[in-house]
């Protein structure tokens, strides 16, 4: 009995991890933008956050201008925006509710309380000066979830799907983070190497908690190419795309071997291909073919990977329409 995992539960675990990871990344991006991202005139560029998520249409349907107030409202408290913290935490909690027979009480209680506090946030909580503590708390709440999960969740099949969700979402978020900086920073070649540019790339590293790790590796200075290479290809940095893909590949192989699962070969092959690609290429070659194009291709493969997992595990033996667990996107 304990060896069976409902396909629907596996999918809900995958999404639970994804939504918490997404929330953490969103808090990182907003925090860093608030604290470090200043342009030459000292203003903050909040539009870049909207561009990062390709949310221009939805955002400008609600607001006329990208100010700190409107962008923060849109991405923190606006429950009608599927890419907000409020939506991601609600989706995480709804998946956890479905999963309550499987997850620990401590995991559930923490998420339930996190959700209650997020749902109670209003404009008064988004005033300047309150943001940094707010984002620090959101990040911590996500990390607390991760820690409680590590310490209390059964290491059975469900654990693998949870971990797969975490790493795939993290890889995806890192590519998005890089992609927006490419959009915002690189189009104007005159700004390359200027002080403002460096501070922007600093901010990027900080948002991925990679600033100090990067400085240890590249003590001489910060170049866009090295930052991009670090976030994409580094073998040890826990948020690099390479490391996330490699972890996912190992997890899937172990899951299949340990539980004798014959399905999921397409996902395994795609992960293998992606890992091989990332380990065989240098950042110079990537920049040569175009960073944006490369990131786009990685994102597409990650999306297809999600579909492979769906076909291989989440909708196995399907004869009727199989409504997926709560997903905001």
């Amino acid at each position: 009995m304990s060896d069976t995992l409902l396909a629907r539960s596996a999918e809900a675990l995958f999404w639970l991890a994804r939504y918490v990871e997404r929330t953490e990344n969103l808090a990182r991006i907003l925090d860093v933008n608030d604290t470090f991202s200043r342009d030459r005139a000292g203003g903050q560029n909040w539009l870049s956050i909207v561009q990062l998520h390709a949310d221009e249409e939805a955002f400008f349907a609600r607001h006329t201008m990208a100010s700190a107030q409107t962008v923060l409202g849109f991405y923190v408290t606006d429950a009608t925006n599927p890419t907000s913290v409020a939506s991601a935490v609600r989706a995480a909690r709804e998946n956890a509710r479905i999963l309550r027979p499987l997850i620990s009480t401590e995991m559930w209680v923490q998420l339930n309380m996190f959700h209650a506090r997020i749902a109670a946030l209003g404009p008064q909580d988004l005033r300047p000066g309150q943001l940094s503590p707010l984002f620090a708390w959101i990040k911590e709440a996500c990390q607390l979830h991760t820690g409680i999960t590590e310490g209390t969740f059964q290491r059975d099949q469900g654990w693998y799907f949870y971990q797969l969700g975490r790493y795939l979402e993290r890889a995806d978020q890192t590519t998005r983070l890089l992609d927006i900086k490419y959009h915002v920073l690189l189009p104007d070649p005159r700004e390359l190497g200027s002080p403002v540019d460096v501070s922007q790339w600093n901010a990027l590293l900080r948002s991925a908690a990679g600033y100090h790790a990067y400085r240890r590796l590249h003590a001489t200075g910060i170049t866009p190419a090295q930052v991009a290479g670090f976030l994409l290809l580094n073998r040890r940095f826990p948020r690099s795309v390479y490391l996330c893909v490699r972890e996912a590949e190992l997890l899937l192989a172990e899951l299949k071997a340990r539980y004798g699962l014959r399905r999921g070969n397409a996902a395994a092959e795609r992960l293998d291909g992606l890992r091989a690609l990332l380990s065989g290429i240098g950042i110079e070659a990537i920049l040569l073919q175009g960073l944006h194009e490369f990131l786009d291709m990685v994102q597409q493969r990650l999306n297809l990977l999600g579909e492979d997992l769906m076909a291989g595990f989440f909708s196995y033996g399907d004869q009727r329409s199989f409504e997926s667990p709560v997903s905001a996107r």
């Binding site: 069976t4 409902l6 396909a7 099949q157 539980y259 399905r263 595990f313 196995y316 033996g317 399907d318």
Partner: peptide, 8 residues
Amino acid sequence: YMRTIGGL
């Protein structure tokens, strides 16, 4: 049967 990740 129930639908599990390993089949029915």
